[in-house]
Design a protein around this nucleic acid. Structure first.
Lengths: 199, 199
DNA sequence: TTGACAAGTGACCTTTCGTTCACTATAATG
DNA sequence: CATTATAGTGAACGAAAGGTCACTTGTCAA
């Protein structure tokens, strides 16, 4: 089927672009990894750049579906421990899911070259996380689990260090285990610092 | 002079690699930006890869000289306000110095491909900053300016968000002003959270 | 059965890449 | 003054890049 190959091409492109970058990827190898010859690719996309644009379209759409809408916000934890657990689950998923890893790498590699990659990178690495945890922390303050404070600032203070550790895992996968332990330690430190003593 | 041109080639390489990446850079343009023809650079470096390696050598040496040694650690602030000022000064410098910006970009673009870039990226973006502020915060705790806590954890919690904002400036220079304000707000928030009330 | 069409092939084209090399100009050295 | 090393030139090379095209194959509707 046409659609099938079209999507397989995008999957292969994600794999190669995330490893070698756009400029470092050639259509020959990309085609070969799909078991076909390079002219076959041009039956589905008119150029290398068209593949790139389609891949970005897909990444943007995926992000919108999974993180863009308000319904997709995570539930507000009922205890500090639940915040730690939720965080660990999210981070554990995001540093082990190959597709998400590759998406982050592509955005990292092309952020200076492509305007849409740049925009998505900022959402993916910064503002999206802040928005998400602003909601979480607002809820936790309402429940009396967190000290009253600027939830946006807390979300920034919480997500940026964790994001840094995720980037570390992408860069040095061997350190993933150690990084996960640091995420947990940081999460508990955060709770200790901002948690409301219920008495 | 031979040395002069050699260094000018490295400077041009830093500029181009940071903008287009290693794979996206070609020797023709690099040479042209120096006002000579491409075969001229081969009088100084035997290959594109040799230029890359020399550039990395230089970046590693530079980092070692300026951030590696214990003497280069910043002075311990005498007041919370001084921490804010010192931070703002450092960040302001690092987001406006073209050479440092380009260095960060190169490390970002080549971190998945080159082992030495990877290593330097982790130092540059994470552990180096943590080490530096571990020293600062240890000193501030000794002076009674900061609540007693794990200084490494505090350094991580302090530098990671700031590092995220620096990366944002690299990615979207138009947001530099806003990012600087966020750095200051975050620094003050940090002081408010961890500062020791002297009474 | 036939015609149309989508998917894939392989040869080929043009451009650009990194690299080489014979050569020139310059300036310091014996 | 003759020599020698250095920096730079310009033409050329082979490899690899992105892309095109005539052609084959398989599928399915009329």
């Amino acid at each position: 089927m046409a659609n099938d190959t079209k999507e397989r091409i995008l999957a292969a492109a994600l794999e190669m672009f995330s490893q070698y970058g756009y400029a470092g990827t050639n259509i020959r190898e990309l085609s070969a990894s799909l078991g076909l010859v390079k002219s076959g690719v041009y039956k589905h996309y008119e150029s290398k750049e068209a593949i790139w644009n389609a891949l970005l379209d897909q990444m943007i759409a995926y992000y919108g579906e999974h993180f863009g809408s308000a319904e997709r916000l995570p539930p507000v934890p009922d205890s500090p421990e639940e915040l730690v657990q939720m965080t660990m689950q999210m981070v554990n998923f995001t540093v082990h899911d190959e597709r998400i890893i590759m998406t982050r790498k592509v955005l990292t590699l092309e952020q200076y070259r492509d305007a849409r990659a740049r925009e998505l990178a900022t959402k993916h690495f910064l503002t999206g996380l802040i928005d998400m945890f602003t909601h979480v922390f607002t809820g936790m303050m309402d429940k009396g689990l967190l000290r009253r404070d600027d939830p946006v600032m807390l979300a920034f203070a919480y997500t940026a260090p964790i994001s840094a550790l995720i980037h570390l895992c992408d860069r040095e996968p061997a350190k993933t285990g150690e990084a996960m332990r640091q995420v947990e330690a940081f999460s508990r430190h955060f709770i200790k610092t901002y948690g409301e003593d219920i008495r």
